[in-house]
Design a protein around this nucleic acid. Structure first.
Lengths: 232, 232
DNA sequence: ATTTTCAGTGCACATGTGTTGACTTGCGCA
DNA sequence: TGCGCAAGTCAACACATGTGCACTGAAAAT
């Protein structure tokens, strides 16, 4: 074992081999992952220091500047990465086909829960910084989320799940769903470890909430354009 | 004008007069308000330093410890204060009677928006720290929000707005509503200043979302308790 | 084979931080 | 009237932080 304890193994793979640009990309990723790893359990991204991140990544502080101008820029990169993660979730779900029959909602929720647990750190990041944190990062996350709900709306549309609903209404519904699921993600994240009954309760609650939304969506009637004429 | 520029007038009133405990309470409030004021525009509570807060409050750093053990304790006090604020909102709304006729939702949303704008900093705080930030504060906020939705559910129940819905279901619905309105608060908070058409759009969107939820609630049928007996 | 580029290092500095202990000063109780 | 208590001050500390500058060595370009 080396005399200087290695931080987290992220450096081990970065040691040798690879062309220069490849290695650069490698330490860049190490920085991103270090940031994510550091906010595991508690601290928001805003509370991280540059030095801390480089330390966790196993790199000298000044090396940071070879990759990002400041922490905000690293944050933006994280947003992008997490956006791709979310997008991937949607795409895979889409590909898996949509069993529109009974229990479809519960299945989706279970898939989602699994996905959140598999990508803890990314969801932790977006949950933390969606409302708090630096304005520029918050803005970026909003855009990403909006993009995501937009794609989801188009999916619902092409599935003809809610015929008679305009695209705008579909987006509104999806906004409701996404918002709910993001806050659910936060709940999933600090779920105590070995309590399967709590897990189940959370899932069932989530299912119920989604059911309400979809019930409402089915019942929705588009407004007659304007409130000019008093009675239909 | 004094040679040393006063931070924000919070000190001016604290200068003379009042019994000892009154003055203590006064600087305590100054600290709390200073913290809130500091996260105006951007920075989360976690990113604030003790010294910064005392500086903004017009007090020497060490005076901080006469009131709070550390920043976390100050955060908890803030949560409590904001909880009371929220509770007050609900109580006043309750007292104002509930016009269950048309446009009730829009009226409520407008009241809410006004309220959020009048209490910018408190909502900014809870929005920021609800998901991000220190675990202990987050936990406290969750409890406060849960308490709030619980009260709201009891209100709905005593109003008989949704007969046939169990208390648990009512709480679920209210959770949906509160969650949505909290994220709406975040949207309200960084609404550009002189854009009334954006304001209106946000309101209408919020109204639509609530309408969907209530439509779903009206349509909701309680599950037959358990899946034991096949048919009632 | 020689030169250039550049990711990563080492060192230094000014500044901000949390917390300590000993102090002043005036309110409030005896 | 005087005395203790405690809110607030002052000075000092041991660090941590962001960032500038000169550097090294190996991969890339010539």
């Amino acid at each position: 074992m080396s005399s200087k304890e290695e931080p987290a193994g992220a450096v081990a793979e970065r040691q040798n081999l690879g062309s220069r640009s490849q290695r650069k990309q490698l330490t860049r990723d190490a920085l991103l992952e270090a940031a994510l790893r550091l906010m595991k359990e508690g601290r928001g991204f805003t509370g991280l220091s540059l030095r801390e991140v480089t330390r966790e990544a196993g790199v000298v502080p000044t090396a940071f500047y070879r990759h990002f101008r400041d922490m905000d820029e690293l944050g933006l990169a994280l947003v992008e990465e997490c956006g791709m993660t979310l997008r991937r979730l949607l795409r895979e779900t889409r590909r898996a086909g949509v069993p529109l029959f009974t229990d479809m909602i519960r299945r989706s929720v279970l898939v989602y829960k699994r996905y959140v647990e598999d990508n803890r750190l990314q969801f932790l990041f977006i949950s933390s910084e969606r409302d708090g944190g630096s304005p520029v990062i918050r803005e970026a996350i909003r855009r990403e989320v909006a993009h995501f709900t937009n794609e989801m709306a188009q999916d619902l549309r092409s599935l003809n799940a809610f015929p008679g609903l305009s695209m705008a209404t579909l987006e509104m519904i999806c906004g409701l769903v996404v918002n709910g699921m993001l806050s659910t993600a936060a709940d999933i994240l600090d779920l105590p470890p070995r309590r399967p009954e709590l897990d189940q309760e959370l899932v069932e609650d989530s299912v119920r909430r989604l059911r309400v939304i979809f019930l409402g969506a089915l019942q929705w009637r588009e407004k007659p354009a304007a409130a000019k004429q008093p009675l239909p």
